[in-house]
Design a protein around this nucleic acid. Sequence first.
DNA 1: CTATTTACCGACCACGTGGTTTGTGGGTCA
DNA 2: TGACCCACAAACCACGTGGTCGGTAAATAG
Lengths: 205, 205
Amino acid sequence: MTKSLKRMATMQRMQVTGLDFFYKNGYYNTSIDDILKELSLSKGAFYYHFESKEDFFIQIIENLLVRKMYSQLIEPIEGHDNTLDLITQCFEEALETAVHNEFDFGFVLSNFINEFNGKNETIMKHLNDILRIWEVNLVSAVQRGKFNGHIDRHVDSEGVAVYLMSSYIGVRTLMVETAPSARKYRFMSQLRQYFKSLEPKTATV
Amino acid sequence: MTKSLKRMATMQRMQVTGLDFFYKNGYYNTSIDDILKELSLSKGAFYYHFESKEDFFIQIIENLLVRKMYSQLIEPIEGHDNTLDLITQCFEEALETAVHNEFDFGFVLSNFINEFNGKNETIMKHLNDILRIWEVNLVSAVQRGKFNGHIDRHVDSEGVAVYLMSSYIGVRTLMVETAPSARKYRFMSQLRQYFKSLEPKTATV
DNA sequence: CTATTTACCGACCACGTGGTTTGTGGGTCA
DNA sequence: TGACCCACAAACCACGTGGTCGGTAAATAG
């Protein structure tokens, strides 16, 4: 059983640096040799642990990407406090992390969706699953907000979710090259403006 | 001078189908041979007209991409009517075009920005130039709106521009795979909601 | 009619790719 | 001690890539 442990450890190492490379250079622009060279491993090792490059990537999605999404964009908004505040703070922190990341190449999920779109249906399905989970959680959060009286009852929950996802995906793309900090600030400011328009109209809560 | 005409015609054909392929499959995933095969031309023809694959792509940007951006997202908002209405209609039409495009692979510009980010600085510069032009024009439009009394004077023009670009880029990514029509509708609905919050607060205009 | 240029052909090259296969050292188990 | 298996090494293969280069028919120029 000690072998199994070593196996897991090696696979984990490969996946972690694999995601690094895929995120930075893209999937098709990263060769298995690149990853192997970084880890001082050989082709034999790779194909001993994984069936193919595609299988390797799918496992990365399931093991690393999904968890990253949960911890950064889903769990933080699951509470029962004011939904709009939760989302605001969640986005704020996610964007701040990106600003301070010297090697930021945009939003991992949307980058991959972009790259695989029209090229690999299998992988696209996995990525879209994550997107769906995110969307569902946002919708639930908005509905909680309506129930708790922080959001006007006439607001379209699905609409807000789509709008939030859109703007987040977009701003992460915009922040990649030019003035990430300034763009983050402007974005958050307008997000708050938008959120204000979602508050109940009868009275201040 | 008739030669020059044929030259131009061939180059144009190459660029047009080149953009098609690059948009659909990505730059690095499209081989020159793919394009040449489609046109029944040879390597010799290609390297007679263009210095390299990169040079070829840059010319595509300058000749085709820039104009597409202008006609679809910049010129439509240049008028002196109500800015918010102009932008609304501009986005509405752009998204509607995408919905009805059977071969929609997202927002051309942001797709390329995504692909070249961190890989090709030269091309990135060209793409960012287009992004800047778009941004500047949006800012101007908002300022016109403030001047004309359609937008509250306290609104941050740059902020609105960033927010608009973000949301548009993002929704185009979201529309690629799942329910483009529904997402377009929800997006436009929330955009109008956001725009309402930008109107002057003193009186209805 | 000749000389030159234009626009293009297609064979060729070096190289990097995903994937296969054979081999091997070190640990496990009887 | 000997049989066996796990985790990996490394040579190898077919193929696609961007790019080069010598050639050539047709158009143009003198």
